[in-house]
């Protein structure tokens, strides 16, 4: 089967196929120097002349997780075919500060109309008993504050919109 996989800003075309019990993989048309074997639903082994690596995979609705030798990787599954190769370019005229994780807003340092500098602390969020400060990545004017102190937010919730001055 064939698919596209994105890492950072690079797109990889991946193709895998089986031959008897062995699995082979091509990335961008180049065959990987490994033979893969399926051990169980979650467990594969990769072999070449030099080494053997146990690889573990699992998935949920949104993601595929891969782990081996202590390293782990998370792939996001999306099915929007029209956008599969479009990389989100950050709109540099504005900065939407989003919560990096679910938590509780403990402090909002700005109000709408405030002028802020690049690097100013904007919001403090608490999760798992630790406070994390979120900073502005541009200099500009606070256009919108979506939350108040004591709000519970999910990850990726827009908190503050700052427009470049």
């Amino acid at each position: 089967m064939v698919m596209k996989i994105k890492y950072d800003k690079e797109i990889f075309n991946v193709q895998n196929f089986t031959e008897k019990d062995d699995l082979f993989v091509k990335i961008n048309g180049n065959q990987l120097n490994y033979i893969f074997k399926k051990i169980s639903e979650n467990h594969y082994q990769a072999f070449n002349n030099e080494k053997k690596i146990d690889i573990f995979i699992a998935e949920d609705k949104l993601n595929i997780y891969v782990g081996f030798e202590g390293k782990s990787f998370k792939f996001e599954k999306t099915n929007d075919e029209h956008h599969y190769s479009i990389i989100d370019e950050k709109n540099l005229n504005e900065d939407i500060i989003k919560s990096p994780l679910p938590g509780n807003i403990v402090k909002v340092n700005v109000k709408e109309g405030d002028i802020v500098d690049n690097g100013d602390p904007i919001i403090v969020i608490e999760a798992m008993k630790m406070e994390t400060t979120l900073y502005s990545s541009i200099s500009g004017i606070v256009k919108k504050v979506y939350v108040q102190e004591d709000y519970q937010v999910d990850s990726d919730t827009p908190l503050v919109l700052i427009e470049k001055a």
């Binding site: 196929f17 699995l23 594969y44 990769a46 995979i57 998935e59 891969v66 390293k71 990787f73």
Partner: peptide, 29 residues
């Protein structure tokens, strides 16, 4: 992350969800 590790991870991710095809189909692709 080394290139080698990344390739292995991508390869493994492609096995997820029983999407493996027999070699005969490769020619059709």
């Amino acid at each position: 992350t080394s290139k080698e590790d990344l390739k292995l991870a991508i390869a493994a991710a492609s096995f997820s969800g029983n999407h493996t095809y027999d070699i005969k189909n490769i020619n059709q692709f």
